[in-house]
Write a protein that binds this DNA or RNA. Structure first.
Lengths: 124, 124
DNA sequence: GAACTCCTTCGAGCGCGCTCCAAGTCAAGC
DNA sequence: GCTTGACTTGGAGCGCGCTCGAAGGAGTTC
C-alpha cells in the first residue's frame, strides 16, 4: 500500500493540490485523508481510486453538490445501493442527452465548415 | 421578413430576453439590432439565424470570447474566410476530443452502474 | 388620464468551481 | 542553528456566463 504526498497525488490524478484540498473540505472525499506526524496529508490507493471516480463524475459534468451527495451515500455504507444506482442512472441519462445534443449541434457546425472549405479552396 | 420583439425572439431562440441583450452588448451580434420608433428592439430573420449559430457554438462549449472573435470576423465581411475556417476547425477538434473523453468516462461509470444493478437485484 | 404592459439602460449580484495568498509549521541538509 | 522546501489553514479572489433589480419611457385600454 503506497501512501502519497498531496503533490504526488496531484500528479497522479491530474488535479492540483489546491483542488484536492478543496474537494476534501467540500465533502467530496469518503473520509478525511490520513496525516503524517507532520500534519501532511497521505493519500492511499483507496483515496486515489475514489478521486478517480470523482474525476469521472466531474468530467461528465456532474455538479459538485451531486458528487457530494453520492459521496455521502457511499460513506454511509451498505444498504443504500439502490439510491446510489438511481443517482448514477439519472446522471447517465443526462450525459447521454447532452452528448446527443452536442453531437447534433456539431453536425450543423460541420455544414458551415464545409461551406467555408468550399469557399477557401473551391474545386471550380 | 418578420420582425420580432425581444420577448418573441427569446421564445424562438430559447434564450431569455436578458441573455439576448447581454449577447448584443457583449459584441456577439453582427450588428446592433434594429429599433422600433419606441426604442424597442426588432429582431429580423437574419438576426435569428445568427443567434442560432451563436447558440450552436455556445452549446458545444465555445467560450463567449471566441464567439465574439468569430462574430468580429463575420462582421468584417469577405476576405477572412480562411480565418473563420481555422477558428471553426479548431473548435470542432476540441469538441470531438471532449466528446471522446466524456464518452470514455461514461463507459467507466456504466461499469459501476452494472455492479450496482447486480447488487440491487442479483440474479443469484 | 390612470392603469397596465412591455420594453429600455445601467450596473450590481450570483452560482459555480476552482485558484491563490498569507502566515505559519515541520523535517532534512548543510 | 539556519536555510530550504514542502506542506498546513482560513479566507479572499476570480473568471465565466448569465441573471436580476431599479428606475423610467412608450403605447394601448378603459
Amino acid at each position: 500500500m503506497t501512501s502519497l504526498s498531496i503533490a504526488e497525488a496531484a500528479e497522479r490524478t491530474g488535479l492540483t493540490a489546491h483542488t484536492l484540498r478543496y474537494y476534501e473540505r467540500d465533502g467530496l472525499m469518503l473520509r478525511s485523508v490520513e496525516r503524517a506526524s507532520s500534519g501532511h496529508r497521505r493519500y492511499t490507493d483507496d483515496d486515489l481510486r475514489w478521486i478517480q471516480m470523482v474525476t469521472r463524475l466531474r468530467a461528465t459534468g456532474m455538479p459538485i453538490r451531486d458528487v457530494r451527495r453520492y459521496a455521502a451515500l457511499v460513506r454511509e455504507g451498505d444498504g443504500n445501493e439502490a439510491e446510489r444506482l438511481d443517482l448514477l442512472l439519472a446522471h447517465r441519462e443526462l450525459v447521454e442527452r447532452q452528448l446527443a445534443e452536442v453531437t447534433s449541434h456539431l453536425r450543423a457546425i460541420d455544414h458551415k465548415i464545409a461551406l467555408y472549405e468550399h469557399q477557401v479552396s473551391p474545386a471550380s
